[in-house]
């Protein structure tokens, strides 16, 4: 007997549902799978992802009427600065992002947007200021970040192993997340044979694979076609509604209406 219902119920409770309601939803979901004569795992995908999807759906109406209900602080920057030798990349950066919020980092080329995102990730240390950040973080670089000779499935296995997931769960989670970006990884196809946009979809999936509370995205839509671009922002909204915090580096100002905070790093090489 699969332990899918138990894991599903546990995840619902973890996401803030009352235990009784979580139990009822778990039982109903198991019944639904029974009616289809299949395992819940096959019908709904990984338990933890379906739980998040369901919680998002349940909370969506409330969020429409009450947009500014935000969760706990996931990222707080206070007076953060970074220098390379004598050149100040940025200084005095303040930013607070809570769960259920999206922040955009904008600015001219070379003003330090990607550097700031790497500071947030912890890959670069700031020279000034303080950073407080939630432990579970997903980072999606602007390009690279994948191994050219491995397939998408192998990337799911590799990144899943790094996060302590067993290979099977990592692959099923990766495939499920890819489907939400309208992408079905072809078996046996190495990453170097993927288009630039599809490679970025893989990057996004890898950033989200271990279920982070904070997503740091560095212009992740490079190479996306129109449909994929819309899917991406739809996905950002879904993350926000699921209570995650998202920080996205962007230069597309018309998307700023979709975000809660805008951090403008200004002109290249200049201080804020």
């Amino acid at each position: 007997m699969s332990d899918w219902p138990a894991r599903f119920e546990e995840e619902l409770v973890r996401l803030g549902l009352q235990p009784a309601r979580a139990r009822r939803l778990s039982a109903e979901t198991a019944e639904q799978a029974g009616e289809h004569g299949t395992d819940p795992d096959r019908l709904f995908g990984p338990a933890h992802l379906y739980a998040r999807h369901l919680v998002t759906e349940l909370r969506a109406p409330a969020l429409v009427s009450e947009r500014h209900v935000s969760g706990p602080v996931m990222l707080r920057l206070a007076g953060v600065g970074k220098r390379y030798r004598r050149r100040t990349v940025f200084s005095g950066v303040d930013l607070t992002v809570r769960g259920g919020e999206v922040a955009a980092i904008v600015g001219a080329n070379g003003c330090g947007k990607s550097t700031l995102l790497r500071v947030c990730a912890g890959l670069i240390r700031p020279d000034a200021g303080t950073v407080h950040r939630t432990r579970r973080v997903g980072f999606v670089p602007q390009d690279g970040g994948t191994a050219s000779w491995l397939t998408a499935d192998e990337h799911f296995t590799l990144f899943g192993a790094a996060a302590g997931m067993v290979p099977r769960k990592a692959r099923s989670t990766g495939t499920h997340l890819a489907a939400r970006l309208a992408w079905r990884p072809a078996p046996g196809q190495p990453v170097q044979q993927l288009s630039g946009g599809t490679r970025q979809k893989l990057n996004l999936v890898l950033g989200e694979l271990h279920g982070p509370d904070l997503l740091l995205l560095d212009e992740p839509y490079q190479g996306f076609d129109q449909g994929s671009y819309l899917d991406f922002w739809q996905q950002v909204r879904a993350w926000r509604e699921a209570g995650r915090a998202v920080v996205v580096v962007t230069h597309l100002l018309h998307e700023l209406q979709n975000v809660d905070h805008v951090l403008d790093l200004g002109a290249a090489g200049g201080n804020r």
């Binding site: 990730a121 990144f159 790094a162 302590g164």
Partner: peptide, 8 residues
């Protein structure tokens, strides 16, 4: 670096 961030 991404593997490190994921926990490896």
């Amino acid at each position: 670096p991404r593997l490190r961030l994921s926990g490896a």
